[in-house]
Design a binder for these strands. Structure first.
Ligand SMILES: [Mn+2]
Ligand SMILES: [Mn+2]
Ligand SMILES: [Zn+2]
Ligand SMILES: [Zn+2]
Lengths: 159, 159
DNA sequence: AACTTAAATAGGAATTGTTCTTGATAAGGG
DNA sequence: CCCTTATCAAGAACAATTCCTATTTAAGTT
């Protein structure tokens, strides 16, 4: 597993991959394009299904390999949540994730300017933080609206 | 999966379990005691190994069942980190976790008074948050010290 | 105390998501 | 074009967890 470097300052994903002594193959490009296209935080299997449209006989293991390579090169981030399958995110900014419990949607929550997680949790100053991972769970606006409509309908009927 | 209720205000774990229409069996008590004893965030297998001292022929599936029951009753929390095995925590206060990359130690980081995660990440006000999960990774003080001693020794030798 | 009924357990099989292995294929530099 | 090495497809293996089922246990009820 190679160290992830500052990919966002390179000019192209190709350069970034080359910078790691690796090649930008058709499979890697296709996987990367799927992630850049759909910014839904797809799982490996979802990427696999989508990418088959471009590279019809790519294997699932190759999709996993490509995702690992892209992650190691710092072009995408892996997102884990509870015991669900890993998801992949091409947003390289520092951000947290929101997971809707009712529809499963995953979305990005940007870090506020000049704020650090350490402002909220007591981190002893003799420990060194290299990463943080933050997940919120709840109900997205779409699902909340849907639920409201349902309860309105129920009220009408009961009258 | 039953809804977790406010276990910390009950008087005993037995009451809490009874409150959910369940029984405090020998296996459940033993699992709970292991968690309360070692506050290291053990995995299911680690709990299994420890609890066998008390209940010699408990099965791993039962340990999983007990852990799930205790979690559902709100007596313990499940802690996931990347793709590692789930760990279990009897600290019911709102807290984050720190994972040492070099020794694997897991420790609790309390929420600061009057702070909320929403202060650090932009959460659209039309989304409802029910839970948050926060993990920090880095190097613990013990490991940092160990590393320093090593590099000192190296310097001495190279002179 | 015996009877009844439902909950809980042990043990093993099954499932899920991911990683590993291996032989074949494809790139890129000389 | 050839050589070397990276990459790939396919399927086996793996780790963690969940599911299944026959048996045991506990709580209530006579
Ligand atoms: Mn994201
Ligand atoms: Mn904890
Ligand atoms: Zn939703
Ligand atoms: Zn450490």
């Amino acid at each position: 597993m190679a160290m992830a470097t500052l990919a966002q300052h390179q000019h192209s994903p190709d350069d970034t991959i080359h910078g790691h002594g690796l090649r930008m193959t058709g499979q890697r490009r296709a996987v990367y394009d799927v992630l850049m296209g759909e910014r839904n935080h797809p799982t490996a299997v979802e990427v696999f299904t989508k990418v088959r449209g471009q590279v019809p006989n790519i294997s699932l293991a190759t999709v996993y390999n490509c995702l690992e390579t892209l992650t190691d090169c710092g072009l995408v981030k892996i997102v884990t949540h509870e015991r669900g399958p890993s998801r992949y995110c091409p947003n390289l900014e520092d951000h947290a994730h929101f997971f809707c419990d009712s529809c499963g949607e995953v979305s990005d929550l940007p870090l506020r300017a000049r704020k650090r997680p350490q402002d909220v949790w007591e981190v002893p100053e003799n420990i060194t933080i290299s990463h943080h991972q933050v997940a919120f769970r709840g109900e997205c606006p779409k699902c909340a609206k849907k639920k409201n409509l349902k309860s309105e309908a129920r009220n009408l009927k009961s009258k």
